[in-house]
Design a protein around this nucleic acid. Sequence first.
DNA 1: ATCTATGGCAAGCCGA
DNA 2: TCGGCTTGCCAT
Length: 874
Amino acid sequence: MPRIIRSALMSSLDQYMAKPEPVPPPRPRQDPKAQLNFRPSLPQELAESYFVGAGYDGERRAVYLKLYEPKSQKIHFWYDNTGHTPYCLSKELPEKLETNQSLVRHPGFVKFERSKRFDALKGEDIPVTVIYARDPLSIGGRPTGCIRDIIKAWEADIRYTENYIYDRRLEPGMSYSIKRGNLVPLQSGSSSINIQTVFEEADPVYQSLLDRWLRLLDFPVPTYRRVAFDIEVHSPIDTRVPDPQEAEYKVICASFASNDNVKKALILKRPGLDVEDAEAPSGLLLDFYETEEELLSAIFRELNDYPFVLTFNGDDFDLRYLFHRAEKLGFTRDKIPIELGRESAGLRYGIHFDLYKFFFNRSIQVYAFSGKYRESTLDAISEALLETGKLEISTPISRLSYSELAAYCYQDAELVLNLTQFDGEVVMKLVTALSRISFLPIEDMSRQGVSGWIRSMLFREHRLRGYIIPRYEEITESKGSTSTIAVIKGKKYKGGMVVDPTPGVHFQVAVLDFASLYPSIIKTWNLGYETILCKHPEDRTNKIPGTDHWVCRKNRAMESQLVGSLRDVRIRWYKPRSKEKSLDPSTLSWYQVVQNALKVVLNASYGVFGSDRFSLYCPPLAESTAAVGRFDITSTIQEAKRLGIEVFYGDTDSLFLGTPDRSRLDDLIHWSKNELGMELEVDKNYRYVALSERKKNYLGVLPDNRVDIKGLTGKKRHTPEFIKATFNQLIEILGQVQTYPDFDQARIKIKDLVQDSYSKLRNRKYSMEDLAFNMMIGKAVAGYTKTTPQHVKAAQQLSDRGNEIKAGDLVSFVKVTGSSGVKPVQLASIHEIDVEKYTEYIRSTFEQVLDAVGLDYEELTGAKKLESFFPGAS
DNA sequence: ATCTATGGCAAGCCGA
DNA sequence: TCGGCTTGCCAT
């Protein structure tokens, strides 16, 4: 066909794809599976749509993108038309590689191509050979016989869709259109912010990074049309969770809750249950199905309708079960809209977002949601974030009535949906922001940890700059290991510094900290795997204080620039704006989300280099970062003392300082900026701080009487509830103290408090739940070989009675008199409680605080004569 | 089989 | 009985 004609036909004809077939008209439900063939929309023209997903089509041997068009709220597909092919790199020349028969005869081998890459470890361009392959599995992924097993290959263990995204400079979460069959990025140019004035940066490379982040992070987030779903499976044994691989039992119910107001439960009719009796809980639609085939077909139709499908553990249960169950019932693959991976489950049409995986991620748990939920169960997370827990049912699922079953099943779907809707949809916004920062589509990002996000961001930057991505051992071999000795046995290098506290009560204390300490150090010290311990002899004098390491003066490190620019964008742009009350609520909420997403990534950006599972593992880099941190805080303390400022305490990046007058603190802040290049900020002011001799243990009272408690047993999770409650009352009392003499009053109140608690304990007025210690069991009971801690003893007793305890379970136990010393709450009675042990526990918990404020526990409880260590008290 | 790092405390176990 | 070690939880 002549070229001209072909191109004229491009809009109606595509060489790769079958023409879209018209959707068949609805038919009566004779064969429920008949209408399930999934036909993707493959438009030649498409208005601006969000790039939300990517996959590889093995048949067509091409990457496809899932594009979400926000107006119609539908997913459209675009297949690669650039001829991009899987590849890996070799440092050998083609002439040499051609002699390797198993390589050139490999069925997946396509061709060699000479090319160049910048080798950042050497600091020079090197020749490389690009080895193209027929499909990604030929490069790697099969158990044996892959190209990467035949030769020493570079960049051979990156998922192909990720490779594609990096090479094509695609930006997940951003907007694209399709014009004449081609993918076209939205021409937004650069962000509209004047970089130079906000960030005072002259380096053009650095400026372009700042500009990139602002462009990615200021771009709007669409409303994602989505449905949450959940299934219930009949199980003959009430306590057993059905195996999704076997899928041997019937699916009896599925529920859907969507943000376009679908609330329904699909129910399988069962003998002995009368449909007429079923009364739907208000607003919930009940749909009954005669056969399981019909039910599954209806579920699949629903899944094919939504661009986003939310589950809680759908990867490992719901979707997996449905897939295998459908196969068992004779559905052919093309009639099942689910694609199973090894540890994930995807959908043909939409994006599957498994909230369990995302909320389980420790970075998300700790930094994004500041530890509000402790267990990654739907119940615990909803209770913490939505303040609505699950309804408990006592009847086994198999014996519920239709309406009970529907209500029970639906509430899970609704909770899952709500988890993406509360607080102005923060979760969907957060996911979008993280996807843009990591250059990973939502489905991939949400299933990886923060190290995967950082890896992806760095790999992408390597590709962008034409750097070869070093192999793991190249870095460790050329940079060696660490030069400091860790304080804690078994650790690789020395970490942060903790200042010995000055015990006592200190009034008017300012807490200063370095803004993003480690990321700032990575930025100002030009730290990266390529610059630390560089090849240039003249740079050996550029020492990292407190180590034997040096850092390059000539080349800028990519990590330093990336981490530094993310840090700047957070500190100088999003963080201040996230507190500006004058902004409209939705902008404000987006800034808070971005600020938080950046915090999550930045917090991990130093640690990953010290993790031997990280692909750019570089211990001297992590070590140097921590060493500069110690240097910075030590020199700041020195300077503070020189300025006549008292230093009471400090930990890693924070200093507790006396406040002689504000101007002297300003002097210190300026000194830090000028001498260290570090931004020191006043984080908060305490009316008073109580310090004991213990590090990481203190109590600080804020001007509004709120109290910060750090590290004290009374606040820890495992502490029995009654002690926590009493402890909180103690804190309440101390929060009222304004000046020294007020401690007199406080002491009397505390005395009453403690005595009251004692008498309740002796009279067995507390419930078992109040008395229970709650400890997470870190591994299976059998895994404790060295010692048998108390919570393990309790778990053992439960196991003996057939109550299986798994790693990660919370064990509740009480201390009892008798040989074992402990019993799980379920098995103990109030009369066995060991009052002495509990008395002792109260004492030690309270002493931690009372010590610090100079009150003596013995006196308080009347065990010793009344006398105070306190100035101002009699 | 997933996991950024190190420093520090309390409690209890267990062998010397 | 003492002290080192294990464990869990927390601070940064």
